[in-house]
Every structure is written in structure tokens, then in C-alpha cells.
């Protein structure tokens, strides 16, 4: 049966959704349209006049080796964040699912990182990894590793991957745990009686039944790694050293606000928008086919 609220007043429903629509218009559609407009304009050196250049901004972008580098960096970064984040949180969720006592404490602790703002998360991990006094740096120093992520590109990547993954684990964990708890216990018991050991049960029963959740989370994590990690990068590495951690969103900001190339930055935004729209379409397409197995 369909549940419907019927409003007596014809204008009330519009009034009720108006704030949300206003916010979306002001903070999403308007800047998005501005980005599209900007992406075909170029400003003069003093930022006083601008003129139409067609797709030249895009053309320049695709010739820019730093942009290609940024793509590679982003691909590596988001793959690492998604793979690490998903595996660790799945492991944690499976553990939590098996716990009988202390589940609440465990769950609450795991959810905390999600409440931490990206920039704060970055700052926290900044302390841990700080070359010299940082705990991690000190530990590595003891083992004879020369640690300075401000100088070493791979170490810098490692640091932002850790910080970004740590923040996303809570979110993934909650979804995985909900997914696991939705699997009837009797299925696992039936498999146990059928002769499957714990690993076999996980790979042949639990994992396939979790695949819709997994797919959803892959998309969410990629989107997260692409777009929501600006704060982490900005507070930890600022894209460096030598642009080794300059992910796409960071480059948009850097080119626009530091290098003052508004047209190029806007063109990058438009490309990012296209990517996120693409990912969303994939996700909805898939989710609409409600039955996955």
C-alpha cells in the first residue's frame, strides 16, 4: 500500500521544500553554472576583464603534463583509499558481528573518526607522522628508516592515504555491519552443517550476499577520495612534495586561488563534475536493479 500525506494547503508543500531548494540553488547550481561559464573564459593578467576563448582552456589542460600527473595521482590515491578502507572496515565489521559482548563500545569507538572534520583529521595525523617528534616518525627512526614525508613523495602519499582511509572507515564499517546483520544467521548455520569452514562460509555465502553493499561503498569511497579529501591533503602535504600528492580537487583549488588561473581551474571543475555525474549514474543504474543476486 502506498502511504501518502495529503496537504490541504496547496502552497505549504512548496514552502516546506523551499529552504532545501534555495540551498541547492545557491550553493550548488549557481557555482556550478559559474564554473561552466568560467571554463570558456580567460581573464587578463590583472583580473579586470575576461574574454571568450571557447574550449581553449580544456585544450591547454589536456596538454598540461601536471594535469596528467594529477590524474595518475588521483587514480592511485583513490584506489588505495577505496581498497584499504573497504578491506579494513570489512574486517572490523566481521569482527564486530561476531562479538557478543562489548559490541556497543566497539561500534561507538569505530564511529568516532567519521565525526572528525577532514582538516582536523589531517592535523591529527600530521602530529603522528611529523618528521622528528611524531610517534610514527620516531618508531621508524628506531628501525633506521629515514622518514620525512615533506621530502619523500611516496611517504607523502602514504600519509594522506592513511589519514583519508582512517576517516572513511567508520562509514564503511556501519554499512558493512548493517549488511552482515541482514544476513540470516541460519544461512551461516546451514553452511556450517553442510561442511563449510569459517573461510569457506565467508567467501561462498557472506561475501556474495554483501556484494550489493560492497558495490555501493566502492562508488561512495571513490567519490569520497576524489572530492572530499581536500582538507586532508591541504593540511598534510599541500599537494607536495613536487606535486606527488596533488589530487584533482587540490589542483582545482591551487590553480584557481594560488596560481590565479580561473579559466583553467573552472575547466578542471567541469571535468570533475562530469566524473561525479558519471559515477552517480552508474550507482543509480545499478541500485535500481534492486535484486543483485
Amino acid at each position: 500500500m502506498e502511504k501518502r500525506v495529503v496537504f490541504q494547503n496547496r502552497f505549504l508543500p512548496y514552502l516546506l521544500v523551499a529552504p532545501q531548494i534555495a540551498i541547492t540553488l545557491v550553493f550548488f547550481f549557481w557555482p556550478a553554472s559559474q564554473a561552466v561559464v568560467q571554463s570558456v573564459l580567460r581573464e587578463d593578467a590583472f583580473g579586470t576583464t575576461s574574454y571568450f576563448v571557447g574550449l581553449e582552456n580544456f585544450q591547454l589542460l589536456f596538454e598540461d603534463e601536471y594535469y596528467a600527473n594529477s590524474f595518475k595521482v588521483t587514480a592511485l590515491f583513490s584506489t588505495l583509499v577505496a581498497v584499504l578502507g573497504l578491506s579494513i572496515s570489512l574486517l572490523l565489521a566481521v569482527t564486530a558481528d561476531r562479538l557478543i559482548r562489548g559490541t556497543m563500545v566497539y561500534k561507538t569507538l569505530l564511529i568516532w573518526p567519521y565525526a572528525v572534520a577532514p582538516a582536523v583529521a589531517g592535523a591529527l595525523w600530521g602530529f603522528v607522522f611529523l618528521p622528528g617528534p611524531g610517534v610514527f616518525a620516531w618508531l621508524l627512526g628506531q628501525m633506521g628508516v629515514n622518514w620525512n614525508f615533506h621530502l619523500n613523495g611516496n611517504q607523502a602519499m602514504f600519509v594522506i592515504v592513511v589519514a583519508a582511509t582512517w576517516k572513511q572507515i567508520s562509514y564503511n564499517f556501519l554499512f558493512f555491519l548493517a549488511g552482515l546483520q541482514a544476513i540470516p544467521k541460519s544461512l551461516i548455520e546451514a553452511a556450517a552443517i553442510d561442511g563449510a569452514g569459517p573461510f569457506r562460509r565467508f567467501w561462498t555465502i557472506v561475501f556474495p550476499l554483501l556484494s550489493p553493499t560492497l558495490f555501493f561503498l566502492i562508488v561512495v569511497n571513490v567519490v569520497y577520495a576524489f572530492f572530499e579529501t581536500f582538507g586532508v591533503v591541504h593540511s598534510l602535504t599541500r599537494g607536495g612534495p613536487a606535486k606527488s600528492t596533488e589530487i584533482l580537487v587540490y589542483k582545482v583549488w591551487y590553480d584557481g586561488f594560488e596560481a590565479q588561473d580561473l579559466g583553467g581551474s573552472a575547466a578542471q571543475s567541469v571535468i570533475l563534475m562530469a566524473i561525479v555525474i558519471g559515477l552517480t549514474v552508474v550507482q543509480f543504474r545499478y541500485i535500481e536493479r534492486k535484486v543483485h543476486y
Binding site: 544461512l187 548455520e189 546451514a190 552443517i193 569452514g197 555465502i205 556474495p208 550476499l209 543476486y293
Partner: peptide
Amino acid sequence: IEPRDRDIAMVFQNYALYPH
């Protein structure tokens, strides 16, 4: 002894068929 080594089979109330 583990369930799988007891040489038993069980039919559950909700059937517990593997949906996939």
C-alpha cells in the same frame, strides 16, 4: 565435534536456502 563432522543434515524453519 563441529557440526560438519557430526554427519547430520538439518532443515530449518525458514529453509535457509542460499539466495544467490
